[in-house]
Design a protein around this nucleic acid. Structure first.
Length: 466
DNA sequence: TTCCCTGTGAGAAGACCGGT
DNA sequence: ACCGGTCTTCTCACAGGGAA
């Protein structure tokens, strides 16, 4: 059972760690030879070398695995990137954020996908950009997308990854480096609207890959990306070495990305293995990319953000500041909508005094775009705190019933009798359900759940002599 | 079930190269 | 410059099997 949080709609932006996205671990192909369990790729994009060695006992990740890893990272960031690296969610929520249809087959695919992602381990040599030190680290390291997957069924003993169903509760522990890198803000923002428009998984995967590679070390998004076919084949995880097959695999994705306006053009020059692909991105007419990122950060789609930044220029900063101010003061149901409305009809709104600001220079603006991400995360944290306050104010019985689900998951090993005892203590107010849940969650994060449960059991036995 | 992605192979066309 | 041999790459057709 996850903490109540702002629901993510299909059109909201997705977050994605950029280092690993560049490695091409997840193939853009929709089908793949799953007998291939080990592979090594060495390639170079925009002059940056990459070397990856992978083992995937359940087959190489591909197709919807991209959607899933985006959903996992997005949800992890929304819950404030907890230090224990666990994401507690449900198969239903994950499916929704991944943009997959809600039917029986999806849950089977979700299970397969999680297994592939969890099973895939990789050694990365070179090309690891350390955001803390602001430079590339030239060492090799073993990484994993997902460290553990736990699936809890409320009334059944846990099994190893049993079949997922919509009501099941799912806990995913992100790989250490992945989580650390996300915390260090080495993330890219992907346009949910665009992801939603792209019908085929290869097109979505290619969009993610292009975004990761088009951004240079300074954070600037290039308008042209030129890649050698051989390098790009490895970056995309296309298995065939035949140049015409590689092109054929990319063709539908190129068509889709052009049709949605993300790419202006794709040119292919040369012949055979010496071919070079030139991706021409649509010129964002917005004079300043930071403004666009700022808007996306409050939930505006990329297309709309580009439009607004073009039309309104620096007023965007005031608008975003206004919405942040409103958010901090109370509830804003739809921050994206409020920003749009503010920009279109500023007369409707009264601006607080301190938000009237002088025009700022380029550097300040970039810093602010970064801050916007941090602010969004602080907002999420704040929402969690507010929810905690609301729960704390409830009478014991109501508090218990509100938390019943998550307690049941956390404390499942207690057994029926102790559970009944716990219920009595919580209902009578002798124990606070909220405290119990928080302590249990903390204990779980420190891998000390068992000793906590033992303590709790003793407490229950003392308090309720039969 | 149908659809269509992907790998394979045949044959044709092109690129490359050394010899005349 | 021309030729012939060889290797690469392209187009096309087709089959298998995973996705919807």
């Amino acid at each position: 059972m996850s903490m109540p949080r702002q629901n993510i709609r299909p059109h909201d932006e997705r977050r994605d760690e950029r280092n690993i996205a560049r490695l091409g671990i997840i193939s853009v192909q929709s089908r793949i030879d799953d007998t291939l369990r080990n592979w090594t790729a060495e390639f170079s994009i925009e002059g940056r070398p990459y070397r990856v060695e992978c083992a995937a006992p359940y087959g190489r990740p591909h197709g919807i695995d991209t959607d899933l890893i985006l959903a996992i990272q997005t949800l992890f960031i929304r819950t404030g990137c907890p230090e224990h690296n666990w994401l507690h969610t449900t198969a239903y929520e994950l499916r929704g954020v991944a943009g997959l249809p809600d039917n029986g087959r999806t849950y089977q695919r979700l299970k397969d996908s999680l297994k592939r992602l969890w099973g895939t381990g990789f050694m990365v040599a070179e090309g690891w950009f350390d955001p803390q030190r602001g430079r590339r680290v030239w060492s090799s390291d073993s990484l994993r997308y997902i460290e553990r997957v736990r699936h809890h069924e409320l009334d059944r003993e846990p099994e190893e990854l049993p079949g997922l169903d919509p009501s099941s509760t799912l806990s995913i522990r992100l790989g250490e480096q992945l989580a650390d890198s996300i915390r260090a803000r080495h993330v890219q923002v992907l346009d949910g609207q665009l992801l939603y428009q792209l019908e085929q998984p290869p097109a979505r995967a290619l969009y993610r890959l292009l975004e990761a590679h088009r951004t240079d070390a300074g954070g600037q998004r290039r308008l042209l990306l030129e890649v050698g076919l051989q390098d790009w084949r490895l970056a995309c995880g296309i298995q065939s070495e035949r140049p015409e097959i590689v092109r054929r695999a990319l063709q539908p994705a190129h068509d889709e990305l052009r049709a949605t306006g993300y790419l202006r053009d794709v040119q292919i020059q040369g012949r055979g293995k010496a071919q070079v692909l030139s991706y021409h991105f649509t010129e964002d007419d917005a004079p300043d990319q930071a403004l666009v990122e700022l808007l996306i950060g409050v939930g505006v789609s990329r297309a709309t953000a580009v439009l607004l930044a073009t039309e309104h220029g620096e007023a965007v900063e005031t608008a975003v500041a206004f919405v942040r101010h409103r958010q901090a003061a109370g509830q804003v149901k739809n921050p994206g909508g409020l920003v749009v409305d503010y920009l279109r009809q500023p007369a409707k709104y009264v601006l607080p005094e301190r938000l009237h600001s002088a025009p700022v220079d380029e550097a300040t603006r970039k810093v602010r775009a970064l801050q916007a991400i941090q602010v969004a995360e602080q907002q999420a944290e704040k929402a969690v705190k507010q929810e905690r306050q609301r729960l704390a104010a409830l009478p014991p019985a109501e508090q218990f019933s509100a938390l019943r689900g998550s307690l049941k998951v956390l404390l499942r090993p207690l057994g029926k009798e102790a559970w009944a005892g716990l219920e009595r203590l919580c209902l009578s107010g002798q124990l606070s359900a909220l405290d119990v849940r928080e302590e249990a969650a903390r204990a779980m994060g420190r891998l000390e759940l068992q000793s906590y449960l033992d303590d709790l059991q003793a407490q229950i036995a003392d308090a309720a002599p039969d």
